[in-house]
Simulated assay, not measured.
Amino acid sequence: MSNSLTIALIQTHLSWENPTENRRLLNDKINAITTSVDLIILPEMFTSGFTMNASEVAETMDGETISWLKIKAKEKQTAIVGSLVISENDIFYNRLVFVEPSGNIIKYDKRHTFTLAGEHKVYTAGTEKVIVDYKGWKICPLICYDLRFPVWARNVENYDLLLYVANWPKVRVSAWNALLKARAIENMSYCVGVNRVGLDGNKYEYSGHSAAYDVLGHRIDTIVENQETTEIVILEKEHIKKYREKLNFLNDKDRFNLEA
């Protein structure tokens, strides 16, 4: 168990529908991290960009990218998290994988597929919320559009870190900024969002705005928008404990049952 968690947020451009090039790009960025970190966070669909051409980029859980992630996690002795297109039984998923240094993998399939882009027509939505127990930290990993749905993210598990990986376009980035901060405040947890930068193959622009918020909604990073960067942030258990005990807001949360 660790009282602190050191995380690396990789805000990067992505090569459109090119897993080989994206693995090369991210391999260099991961290798460039010289600080000892516990967790490296990559964007949503980090092998391809946010594409609806699933058949062109889909891999399996035994594919090249998963094998590469296992190798990098072991080499760097850190967990690595991000999402990619996975095919299982002729069904496509926008799947987040949390790869531990041991090679153990926890997976989460995106619950809220982005209907505006037709994601629901290509990818099957997940049905299970996942809590990762890593180094004594309880982490709730979610994907992009999930950010707009606070009930799904509600902290009923007493998690410590709410984590979003995303391809969130510049045109709606004000919502991204507001909702990340809100999720931190309402759940009294750290909230971290990692977004990409650059243009995708559909000419959508992404401006980053990756960020880390503490339980009071204060930013604890120095990430600059529109730039490729790797930011190291340290999260502290004592910060969570102090303000949860002092304010007790989670004790007053509404009780509810979530329907499928």
Rank of each mutant, 00 (worst) to 15 (best):
M1N: 13
M1E: 14
N3Q: 15
S4T: 15
T6Q: 01
I7K: 02
A8N: 01
I10C: 11
E17N: 12
N18R: 06
P19G: 11
T20V: 15
L25G: 09
L25D: 08
D28G: 11
K29R: 14
A32L: 12
I40Q: 06
E44T: 02
S48K: 06
G49F: 00
F50L: 13
T51C: 07
A54N: 01
E56A: 01
E59L: 05
T60P: 04
I66F: 06
S67R: 11
I71Y: 12
K74S: 08
V81S: 10
L84Y: 01
L84P: 03
S87Y: 00
R95K: 07
P101W: 13
I105Y: 11
Y108A: 10
D109R: 04
H112K: 15
L116N: 11
L116V: 13
T127N: 14
E128G: 00
I131S: 02
Y134E: 06
K135T: 10
K138V: 04
K138T: 14
K138H: 13
I139Y: 02
I139A: 03
C140W: 03
P141N: 03
V151A: 13
W152F: 13
A153V: 02
A153I: 11
R154W: 10
N155F: 05
D160G: 04
D160Q: 03
D160K: 03
L161I: 09
A166P: 06
N167K: 03
V173Q: 12
A175I: 06
A178Q: 14
L179T: 07
A182Q: 08
A184L: 01
A184K: 05
E186I: 07
E186P: 03
S189T: 07
V197Y: 00
N202K: 09
N202F: 06
K203C: 05
K203G: 02
Y206P: 00
S207T: 06
V215Y: 01
G217Y: 08
V224I: 09
V224L: 11
E228L: 07
V233C: 05
I234T: 15
E236V: 04
K237A: 15
K237M: 13
E238T: 08
H239Q: 13
K242Y: 06
Y243Q: 06
R244F: 08
R244G: 12
N248L: 14
F249S: 10
D254I: 11
D254R: 12
F256K: 06
